[in-house]
């Protein structure tokens, strides 16, 4: 039981606000989607978790392929849809023998609205603030089983519950660099007797243009160095109404990476390295998360 709660937290953490348009790789941005315009994003997220004080020697590998479509309802209001495909595999020692449990399939779909509340444009730079709010619907299977029995919540493709989330993101972009920050909260609701803890996040991102070193005429491609930081705080899970002491806690990631930006395409990748993991009890610690993907303006 104890590993279920942590697994769910990690799995849901993979499909948070990261898959949206804009420059930060691991979270949202306040840069615009034009009115009646589409922006698409594809993202692969590979996560490995295996460190932890538990005696069951848990090892969780997860790969998510996430598709995002953004549409500008007008120049200030944009609608985003997110659909992940998730593959999860857990190795664990149970009763002295090593057991492998896994699942794969479409995950829960999400949608959110983002509104540009503040827009301060100057030649060659802009500052924007955009609150956002959305829903995650229980569209995926949350009742899968294997030969051992029903899979734990963290290995299910879906959570079985409606979640709500919201926050505010700010972006300062110049021709030379870009800085983004975001604060967000996700209310995660109960399904099947399991109530995953709510999640609070603080994110920051800095992108610095490495190439070209000086700008000429026209619109050259940009190569950015990226450094992001993410603080993720999760409440304890509740199982059948009781707190699980081996779940929740705080993780801080540092995420170096690169981003190549053309007029129509962005190709990007970061490695999220957990530098602080202050988790409760025997909650499973993360080893690393790799995010790589593209964005397409069409």
């Amino acid at each position: 039981m104890r590993y279920r709660n942590t697994l769910l937290g990690i799995a849901l953490g993979l499909i948070i606000f990261g898959p949206a348009v804009g420059a930060p790789v691991t979270f949202n941005t306040a840069l615009p989607v034009g009115g009646d315009e589409f922006v698409a994003r594809g993202l692969v997220v590979v996560s490995q978790s295996g460190d932890g004080p538990g005696a069951d020697d848990r090892d969780l590998a997860s790969t998510s392929v996430i598709a995002v479509l953004g549409y500008g309802l007008n120049h200030r209001l944009a609608l985003f849809g997110v659909l992940p495909y998730v593959d999860k595999e857990l190795d664990i020692t149970m009763n002295g023998s090593r057991v492998n449990r896994s699942s794969s399939g479409l995950g829960d779909a999400s949608a959110f609205l983002r509104y540009t509340l503040v827009q301060r444009d100057q030649p060659g730079h802009t500052f924007r603030v955009a609150p956002f709010a959305g829903l995650k619907a229980p569209t995926a299977d949350d009742n899968r089983s294997d030969s051992i029995g029903r899979l734990p919540p963290g290995l299910q493709s879906g959570s079985g519950a409606w979640d709500v989330f919201g926050g505010v993101t700010a972006t300062y972009q110049t021709l030379d660099f870009q800085a983004d920050a975001q604060a967000s909260y996700r209310v995660r609701n109960e399904a099947n007797g399991f109530d995953p803890g709510d999640e609070f996040r603080l994110d920051g991102s800095l992108q610095y243009r490495l190439w070209p070193q000086s700008l000429g005429d026209g619109v050259p491609d940009f190569l950015y160095a990226v450094l992001e930081a993410n603080l993720v705080r999760r409440d304890n899970n509740r199982v059948n109404g009781a707190d699980d002491p081996n779940s929740g806690g705080t993780t801080i990631y540092l995420s170096p990476g690169v981003q190549y930006v053309t007029r129509r395409w962005i190709v990007e990748g970061v490695v999220q390295l957990p530098v602080v993991q202050n988790l409760h009890g025997t909650a499973l610690e993360n080893d690393y998360v790799v995010r790589a993907g593209f964005r397409f303006n069409f």
């Binding site: 444009d121 100057q122 060659g124 802009t126 870009q178 050259p220 940009f222 053309t262 007029r263 962005i266």
Partner: peptide, 18 residues
């Protein structure tokens, strides 16, 4: 015409497209 707030290639394409 001057356009302010424009600071990356991806944004430039949005203006061009519009």
């Amino acid at each position: 015409i001057e356009v302010t707030g424009l600071a990356c290639p991806f944004c430039a394409y949005s203006v061009e497209k519009s």
